[in-house]
């Protein structure tokens, strides 16, 4: 923080713009004095320039004005869920700090004389080739048997938690829904989403199929799904029984997002049903209490059934 001492030690510190060190005008001096930002020389200039009583009143006016501005601008309530949302976003972010990279201080000092000998080197080459082939064969067998993608379970759980909480806050179509879902007509929602996500309106080809499948569009609002720059939240309702389903569309995914691009269904212990997949540079997330509603959405999107089933707490 710049103290008055710092200002006193740097008289004429370019306050009028680059290279201009002429004295401050009286009005600026009064305001700087009210803010406690005048140097001794400026204070003397202020006292010499006008009668003190008028200057004192004007300084007092400025100080009262500052208090009024504070009173008026200060009471902005931070949303109750913002701390949790940011904590989730931070937790899903790998550290970029250099000191998190573990390096061996002895890496270049290992004695390699035995392994560098000609005989061992020749034998070693054949042994290495055999080992590589064995490992490759093992990996191929393992990959062919495995259905689990290489994804961070923690990251998946946080995503499920985020979209689940967003869905829960809107699924009753109550006050929060009304506040969040700014666009409630399909056409306006598509235009808004295309603008927010910077994608073509044609990306919303699924809408007709969802409508034909017995779903009614409920609204679209902004949101901030972790690990991406832009995202929107759409909510629908199955007309036959009113079951709500949330769809989140995200663009600008961070490299830290490690979900597979093909359809990925979460086997949630705490949450009902969650699916996510990616088409080119757009990622989709679906969330509903009903597995068959999620299945309907996947059908509308013509998502391939190359599914991964994941565990999420």
């Amino acid at each position: 923080m710049a103290s008055m001492d710092e200002h006193n030690s740097t008289p004429g510190d370019h306050r009028h713009g680059v290279g201009d060190q002429s004295p401050l005008p009286l009005a600026a001096l009064i305001r700087a004095a009210a803010d406690g930002e005048v140097t001794d020389a400026e204070q003397a200039q202020l006292e010499a320039a006008s009668d003190n009583e008028s200057v004192t009143d004007r300084i007092e006016f400025e100080q009262d004005l500052r208090a009024a501005v504070r009173r008026h601008l200060d009471p902005v309530a931070t949303p109750a869920d913002l701390r949790e949302r940011i904590a989730a976003a931070l937790a899903s972010e790998p550290s970029a700090r250099a000191d998190d990279v573990v390096t061996s201080p002895h890496g270049d000092t290992r004695d390699r004389s035995f392994w560098a000998s000609p005989v061992v080197a020749t034998l070693g080459r054949w042994a290495a080739v055999a080992a590589v082939l064995a490992i490759a064969a093992t990996l191929i067998v393992m990959a062919s048997r495995s259905t689990a993608p290489s994804v961070s379970t923690d990251q998946a759980s946080r995503l499920v938690g985020f979209v689940g909480s967003q869905h829960a806050s809107c699924k009753d179509f109550g006050d929060h829904y009304k506040q969040k879902m700014e666009w409630q007509s399909v056409g306006e929602a598509h235009d808004a989403a295309a603008k927010i996500l910077d994608i073509a309106p044609a990306a919303f080809h699924f809408e007709d199929l969802l409508t034909a499948g017995g779903y009614e569009f409920g609204g679209l609002g902004r949101c901030a799904v972790p690990n991406g720059s832009h995202s929107v939240h759409l909510i629908y309702k199955r007309l036959s029984d009113g079951t709500p389903v949330s769809l989140f569309i995200q663009t600008g995914m961070a490299p830290s997002l490690k979900l597979p691009k093909s359809c990925c269904l979460m086997d949630c212990k705490r949450s009902p049903e969650f699916a996510t997949w990616q088409e080119v540079n757009v990622r989709y997330y679906v969330f509903s209490e009903s597995p068959d509603v999620v299945a309907d959405v996947l059908t509308a999107f013509k998502v391939t059934r190359d599914r991964h089933v994941l565990d999420a707490e």
Binding site: H16, G17, L24, P25, L26, A27, A28, I30, R31, S54, D57, R58, E60, F61, E62, D64, L65, A68, R71, H72
Partner: peptide
């Protein structure tokens, strides 16, 4: 590029107003 216009602030007492009116 613009200079700070030399027009001093008012000298009257802001506290004499109702805070609601000021807001």
């Amino acid at each position: 590029r613009e200079r700070i216009p030399d027009e001093p602030p008012p000298a009257w007492d802001l506290k004499s107003f109702d805070p609601d009116h000021i807001d």
